[in-house]
Each structure stands twice: as structure tokens, then as C-alpha cells.
Amino acid sequence: MSKEFENTKIQYHIIYFNDKVVGFSKIELNTPNKDINDLNITKLDRLYLLEAFHGQKLGSKLFDFNIQLSKNEDQNGIWLAAWIENQKAINFYTKMGFKIVGKYNFKISETRSNPNHIMFLKY
């Protein structure tokens, strides 16, 4: 993880609520994806919010913050992988304008993987 902190393409951000850490995000600038033809795109690698803080628009604020950062870096869009069984996340990203553009199997072990949608939001 310390190597990630040295990589200027990777940015972590923490969101607070009433002086308490309630979530974080990780983006990777200029990270292509085989299912997306656009260049200069950002990967939204993580966006987590403690469940106790869902429904308070904090996830949307953290998401919007990352979108603005990506745009400020002259990126043309942002993509992510969402587990196909995480309907809550898929609904959130669809509501934010993402489209399903591909698929990816996240390898858990030699015998198991989780299927994911590749979702993309073009600016």
C-alpha cells in the first residue's frame, strides 16, 4: 500500500461526518479498460461508506468530489467494476449516469471468482 501512496496516479480521499471518518474512496487517473475506447479515463477503484451513514447523501458527496477531481485532471470519463449481485451499488451508479459496458471476473481463488459489471460514465 505504501507504493500506492507514492504513485501520483492514485488518490485516496476520506470523508468525515461530525469529526468521524465514515468512508473513503480511491481513484486511479489515466487507467484504461479493454471495454472502453476512450483515452484519459479514471478508474473509481473504491467508494465505501459505513452502512450507518447510508441515506444521508454522503456517498453522493464523495462520488461528486471524485468526479470533479477526475474532470480537473482532464479525464474524459470514469469507470468501475461492480459485483453483479450488489444491486444497491449498481442502482447507485446507474442513477449517477453510469452505463454497463462490459464484464470482468474478479478472481477470489483458483476455483472461485465473482462476476462484475464494468460501468462507465463519459463526461
Score class of each variant (00 low, 15 high):
S2N: 15
K3R: 09
K3E: 14
E4D: 15
E4N: 13
K9G: 02
I10V: 09
I10K: 10
Q11D: 09
Q11E: 15
Y12L: 05
H13E: 15
I15W: 00
N18C: 11
D19P: 06
D19M: 03
K20H: 10
V21Q: 10
V22K: 02
V22Y: 05
S25I: 00
K26V: 09
I27M: 12
E28R: 12
L29N: 08
L29A: 03
L29Q: 04
L29K: 06
N30R: 05
T31S: 15
K34P: 02
I36P: 01
D38M: 10
L39T: 12
N40M: 06
I41M: 02
I41T: 05
T42L: 05
T42Q: 07
T42R: 01
L44R: 04
R46E: 14
L47P: 01
L47C: 02
L47I: 11
L47V: 03
L47R: 00
L49K: 01
L50T: 07
L50I: 08
L50S: 08
L50D: 14
A52W: 06
A52E: 14
A52N: 15
F53E: 15
F53L: 12
G55L: 00
K57I: 04
L58I: 13
L58E: 08
F63L: 08
F65C: 01
F65I: 06
N66P: 01
Q68Y: 12
Q68I: 13
Q68G: 08
Q68S: 12
L69F: 08
L69P: 04
L69N: 10
L69V: 07
S70A: 05
S70F: 07
S70P: 04
K71V: 13
E73A: 15
D74K: 14
D74V: 10
D74C: 14
D74I: 11
Q75V: 07
Q75A: 04
Q75K: 03
N76I: 03
N76S: 02
I78Q: 06
I78K: 04
W79L: 04
W79V: 00
L80P: 00
A81C: 14
A81L: 12
A81F: 07
A81E: 13
A82C: 07
W83F: 12
I84H: 13
I84K: 15
I84W: 09
E85A: 10
E85R: 12
Q87R: 09
K88H: 07
A89Y: 08
A89D: 09
I90K: 14
I90Q: 13
I90A: 09
N91P: 02
F92G: 03
F92E: 01
F92N: 04
Y93G: 06
T94E: 11
T94P: 15
T94Y: 08
T94R: 13
K95S: 08
M96P: 10
M96I: 10
G97E: 00
I100G: 07
I100W: 05
G102L: 04
K103F: 13
Y104W: 12
Y104D: 12
Y104C: 11
N105P: 08
N105H: 14
F106K: 09
F106H: 10
K107G: 06
K107Q: 14
K107W: 03
E110C: 06
E110I: 05
T111C: 10
R112Q: 12
R112G: 05
S113F: 11
N114L: 13
N114F: 12
N116H: 10
H117I: 00
H117Y: 14
H117P: 01
H117L: 01
I118H: 05
I118M: 04
I118E: 03
M119I: 01
F120S: 09
F120R: 09
F120K: 11
Y123I: 11
